[in-house]
Design a protein around this nucleic acid. Structure first.
Lengths: 124, 124
DNA sequence: ATATTATTGCGATTATATCGCATTAATAAA
DNA sequence: TTTATTAATGCGATATAATCGCAATAATAT
């Protein structure tokens, strides 16, 4: 199964990389207009996550947000940090703080998904 | 606006209280069968959250989970703890650890929503 | 230039949750 | 207890996020 480079793919990757924030499908669609189909955007994003070049985080609004992996190289594909979602302007940012996951014995963690929602400095 | 005590309401509250875990609409519906309508379950849960007798948490699967408030009395209506969702059996538990929310200056937090997903001891 | 097939676009579909509105039933008042 | 008031419910329609099936398109190997 040879992977192919397509226009949609590069457009979406560029959008992810240009954004300092985590973006939803909606944002990407708005950015790209109707040039790329909705289903394609979702499929490309899902592939990016599988390939490990993007993160998927589920917002406390129940929507999916995506961000290009910057720090995580190769094996260490973790992002144990919190995200902040502004209730007013809707932007989702990665917060600097790492969270240490302390779990009771016997639990096997796979993913961390943390959100603080509230008001960002611009909207407060 | 006088609040009324109804059968649905007490059934749902009892379900919440009996469950040691956070439950989704689906779980509650399964528990109660068709005796209570879907919309009613959602509406009652939403009211519970407004009244401060239940917590709403959004799972990293994008679904809403609800839990009866136990510790939080009156003013201190916080639940800055993580939740664990088992990828196998689907159960959602509250973890003991409190998380301290350190935010950069200017950010005004309103809610915390944290999930670790993975495998619980029974499923690991 | 051609063949192969990964990827796309489109429409239909699933899943979660909410809404409008007529009906029901919990509570207050008579 | 009976009646009136209206909060709450049930039902069907609707909103929104995301996925799926399948024919058409286009990226790459030959």
């Amino acid at each position: 199964m040879h992977v192919r480079n397509t226009k949609s793919k590069s457009l979406i990757l560029e959008t992810l990389k240009n954004s300092k924030q985590a973006v939803s499908h909606e944002k990407i669609q708005a950015e790209l207009g109707e040039s790329v189909d909705r289903a394609t955007i979702y499929r490309v994003l899902n592939r990016f996550c599988e390939e490990g070049i993007a993160h998927r985080i589920t917002g406390d609004d129940g929507k999916q947000y995506f961000a290009a992996c910057l720090k995580c190289q190769g094996k260490e594909h973790r992002h144990n940090h919190l995200h902040f979602r502004c209730l007013n302007c809707g932007k989702v940012e990665c917060l600097p703080n790492e969270i240490e996951l302390k779990l009771p014995a016997g639990y096997r963690p796979a993913n961390f998904n943390g959100f603080i929602s509230g008001h960002c400095p611009a909207c407060a």
